[in-house]
Structures are given as structure tokens and as C-alpha cells.
């Protein structure tokens, strides 16, 4: 063995997630939870609606997390978190962070009205949506977060999903809430930094975390991080922040934009796509990317109309 060196870790060593949880091999959602809890620390309350994490956490008298968890109904993640926060404030506790932790089904489809209500009242909560692009927990049904061309059990190969993904970040930006960020499990330092920043802001804060799912995407479990990284490098899932719905900050700008084929070919759910459809997806991504670049220009740089 070589001479001992000190190990420099980019994240703190404390763990608030225990092993023994019930996630599949190579799960992206567990990684997201691990990084978020590292940033938020012990004084955190989680509200989890029906999603993968309500199963991963464990059956009744057990929990794999070291923080309090409140399991609520599917559509009430944001409303429950608002209630927990109001209750804590009544009891005189102003420090504890309350987090609503929902999947993409509970955010894009079912929980959207509760989330919109909480954002409109500007309740002091953090809402985290971990996005695995379908209802993975109940058996890979299509959600409005599923991208164009993807296979799911309700959109089989012959009738694959024909609609693009819903732009949830733009919907939340229209609420003019103090802080919105997108993050990816392949960039934990970036996610950690944003979560630390969000912890000190008052008001509704929204996080959109990209979490690949090997069982639902029909990819190899060891490719989880590679897929999340490729999604950023191909500009399919850009990492950016929005403050007060107006100020856009781009965090990672890839030096060389990779073609989307690299990302699609690693996943079994896109195996049926022909060249024509891949070109359509590439055009859609280019359009979204240019739109984002335009928004990220500072106000003084903007051309006067």
C-alpha cells in the first residue's frame, strides 16, 4: 500500500439515510435523498406522498431515514408540508425545515393544484420533485413528465408517447416564488450547494431533481450516473436557477453539446425510435436550449425591443 494521504471529500460525512432500504439496484432517487439530507441536516421534517420513496422508506414500524417522515395522500404533499410548517411555528419552532418530497406523478399531474396553492400563499417550505419520468412505483405508467417517444406500459411501442414533456419549471416560475432550481444526481456538489442556498431563503422553494430509474428506463443499473450526466451534457436537462421568477442563472454550460442519440441508445425504452423521430427530439431540445440561453442573458445585455 502507498503512503497514507488524507482523503478530501466534496460532501460532509454525516449520513441521514441508513442502508437496508428497499430501493432497486442503482436507484437515482435514493441518491437524491442522500444528498438533500446531507445539505439540510438533522432538523428537517419530510412529507412524502405516494411515490417510490414511500416504499423505499420501509414498512410500518421501521424507517430508513434518521429524520421524521410524514406519509400523506397522493395529492396533498405541498398542503401537508404547509400544515406541518404552520403547526411547528405555532409551537414556537422556527428553525426546522419542512420538505415536501414528491415524485413526478405527484408533482406534474396529481399534486399540481396543492403545489400551486402553496406557491401562491408563499408558504415557507421546500418542495422537491425527483423526476424519474413515469409512475415507476405502480409499474411504469405514463405521466406528463414522460418525454416524447418513450415506451411505458400504458404507451406501448406501437403507440409510444406522442406529446412532449411538461415544462414544470416554467409553470413554477410563473408563480414568482423566491427560488427555483433544477439539479441532477450526477452533480452532487452542485445539488448540495443549491440546497444549502435554498435553506436560508424564506418562502416557497422548488427543486426539480433528475433521478434516473434503471427498472423503468430499461437501462443497466451501473449506467445511472452516466445517464444523468449525459442528460446535462446533451442539454436535455439543463441545470439552472431562477430567482423571483425573473433572474435566470445557468449553472453548467457544456463545452461541447453532445448529440441526443448517445443518451437515447443507453435506454431500452427508446429502442424502437427511428432516425426521423430522433431528429424531432433533437430539434425540440435545440429549441428549448436556445430559449433558455436567451432567458439567461442579464437584463443589461438584453436587446431593447
Amino acid at each position: 500500500m502507498k503512503k497514507p494521504r488524507t482523503m478530501k471529500l466534496s460532501l460532509p460525512l454525516e449520513e441521514y439515510m441508513n442502508p437496508g432500504h428497499l430501493a432497486c439496484q442503482g436507484c437515482g432517487a435514493t441518491l437524491a435523498m442522500r444528498y438533500v439530507l446531507k445539505a439540510l441536516g438533522q432538523r428537517t421534517v419530510l412529507c412524502i406522498p405516494a411515490c417510490c420513496w414511500s416504499v423505499i422508506d420501509g414498512p410500518f414500524p421501521y424507517s430508513s431515514l434518521d429524520v421524521p417522515v410524514f406519509h400523506c395522500a397522493f395529492e396533498t404533499a405541498a398542503a401537508s408540508a404547509s400544515g406541518v410548517k404552520a403547526g411547528l411555528e405555532m409551537a414556537g419552532d422556527k428553525e426546522t425545515t419542512v420538505v415536501a418530497w414528491a415524485g413526478d406523478g405527484g408533482t406534474f399531474d396529481i399534486g399540481l393544484q396543492a403545489l400551486s396553492g402553496a406557491a401562491e400563499r408563499n408558504d415557507n417550505i421546500i418542495y422537491v420533485c425527483y423526476d424519474n419520468e413515469a409512475y415507476m412505483n405502480t409499474g411504469i405508467q405514463r405521466s406528463s413528465a414522460t418525454p416524447y417517444g418513450a415506451w411505458t406500459t400504458t404507451t406501448p411501442v406501437k403507440h409510444f408517447k406522442d406529446q412532449p414533456k411538461k415544462d414544470i419549471v416554467a409553470i413554477m416560475a410563473a408563480h414568482r416564488i423566491p427560488y427555483i432550481a433544477t439539479a441532477s444526481v450526477a452533480y452532487p456538489e452542485d445539488l448540495f450547494k443549491k440546497m444549502k442556498k435554498a435553506k436560508d431563503i424564506k418562502g416557497t422553494r422548488f427543486f426539480h431533481i433528475f433521478a434516473p430509474c434503471p427498472s423503468g428506463w430499461k437501462s443497466r443499473p451501473e449506467d445511472t450516473i452516466k445517464l444523468a450526466r449525459l442528460a446535462v451534457q446533451t442539454c436535455y436537462f439543463p441545470l439552472y436557477e431562477i430567482e423571483w421568477g425573473e433572474k435566470y442563472i445557468l449553472n453548467i454550460k457544456p463545452r461541447e453539446k453532445k448529440p441526443i442519440v448517445d443518451y437515447l441508445r443507453l435506454q431500452g425504452r427508446f429502442n424502437h425510435l427511428t432516425e426521423k423521430e430522433i431528429n424531432l427530439i433533437q430539434e425540440e431540445i435545440d429549441r428549448n436550449w436556445h430559449r433558455l440561453l436567451r432567458l439567461c442573458l442579464q437584463p443589461e445585455e438584453k436587446p431593447t425591443a
Binding site: 441508513n18 432500504h21 428497499l22 414500524p61 421501521y62
Partner: peptide
């Protein structure tokens, strides 16, 4: 309420 950790589950 939770009474114990899931660590008994040797995955």
C-alpha cells in the same frame, strides 16, 4: 410512528 431502523434488512 417509526420505532426502529431498517438496518435489520440485510440487502
Amino acid at each position: 410512528m417509526s420505532l426502529g431502523s431498517m438496518t435489520f434488512n440485510l440487502t
